[in-house]
């Protein structure tokens, strides 16, 4: 962690800029879900995104991964504008998991991971129909890599189970393995510990550090504050579509505005307790 965080909270160990979201705004009709949000992620960094329910975190995520096209603002990945389609974003090197697990339930664990490799393989229909060398080569390589990834996330031996039959925590890890299979530079995790018990949460934490050690940058949405402040080099707090605070865990944790956003302002006497302001009271006076 940085010993001397500047205002943006960029740690001293941060490398080049990977993702640069610039004044992103997302408007659904009259609702502005994300308003003028800027966020940078550097290589080798774990960045957290927190905020109360409905703050626009997942919407912002969807803007970053090409699921939504921002109404205004720009997103650059590795200095290039973000491609317009999710699958092209994956190709560019950004992979994500989902808040509600979205595995391919009737496929085995290893098949799930191999689907993740789709954008990194070239076998076409002709290769597959005639079992040409490219098909066989890629199939062998994919299977091997998928097994490695399953081992990496701690799912050794579960490769042939249907993903729907895996325990809950394993399903979350399988989703991460599937995202890793796309060979990303930046991994976006949408509430990776939702529904986990404290022990599983700790395991998830270890796994995310392990992924960072591979040289990946990680952007993570979470509600579990202990988890996020342990994990992240930098945290941004999103409230009502706007970035309220951005900085190291400590800065964000102690910011009064963040506390207010989550648990409300300290109890002061509401205005209506003053005479004359209470509903109905004025009428009685008249």
């Amino acid at each position: 962690m940085s010993s001397n965080p500047d205002e943006s909270g960029v740690g001293v160990n941060a490398g080049e800029v990977l993702l640069d979201a610039h004044n992103v705004t997302m408007q659904f009709g009259g609702l502005r879900a994300v308003n003028d949000v800027s966020l940078r992620v550097h290589t080798g960094e774990i960045v957290g995104l927190i905020g109360p329910n409905g703050a626009g975190k997942t919407t912002f995520f969807n803007c970053l991964t090409g699921l939504y096209k921002p109404t205004a603002g720009s997103v650059e990945f590795l200095g290039e504008p973000l491609p317009p389609k999710p699958r092209l974003v994956v190709r560019a090197g950004m992979a994500r998991t989902f808040q509600n697990i979205r595995l391919f339930h009737n496929m085995t664990a290893i098949e799930n991971v191999m689907v993740g490799m789709y954008s990194r393989t070239q076998t076409n229909a002709i290769d597959a129909i005639f079992r040409l060398p490219r098909h066989r080569r890629e199939e062998l390589a994919s299977t091997k890599r998928a097994k490695e990834l399953l081992d990496f996330v701690g799912l050794t031996g579960s490769g042939d189970s249907l993903s729907r039959n895996l325990p809950y925590g394993d399903q979350r890890r399988l989703e991460i393995a599937r995202a890793l299979a796309t060979d990303p530079k930046l991994l976006l995790l949408d509430e990776p510990t939702a529904g986990m018990n404290p022990q599983e949460t700790r395991q998830a934490e270890e796994l995310i550090f392990k992924i960072r050690d591979l040289g990946l940058a990680i952007l993570v949405i979470e509600h579990d504050m202990r988890f996020i402040f342990n994990l992240c080099d930098r945290v941004a707090c999103l409230v009502r579509g706007e970035v309220l605070v951005e900085g190291t865990g400590k800065v964000v944790q102690n910011d009064p505005r963040v506390i207010e956003a989550y648990i409300g302002a300290p109890a002061t006497e509401p205005d209506w307790q003053q005479p004359g302001d209470r509903p109905g009271e004025g009428v009685a006076d008249a």
Binding site: E111, E138, S142
Partner: peptide, 29 residues
């Protein structure tokens, strides 16, 4: 069978299971 047991077949089944997730995993749905 050859298509089914290939990258293409896995992509197809992934689309059947969850098209949005397949697209988000890089499958050209």
């Amino acid at each position: 069978t050859n298509l089914n047991h290939s990258r293409i077949g896995r992509g197809w089944v992934a689309i059947r299971e969850d098209e949005l997730a397949a697209e988000a995993m890089g499958v050209n749905t």
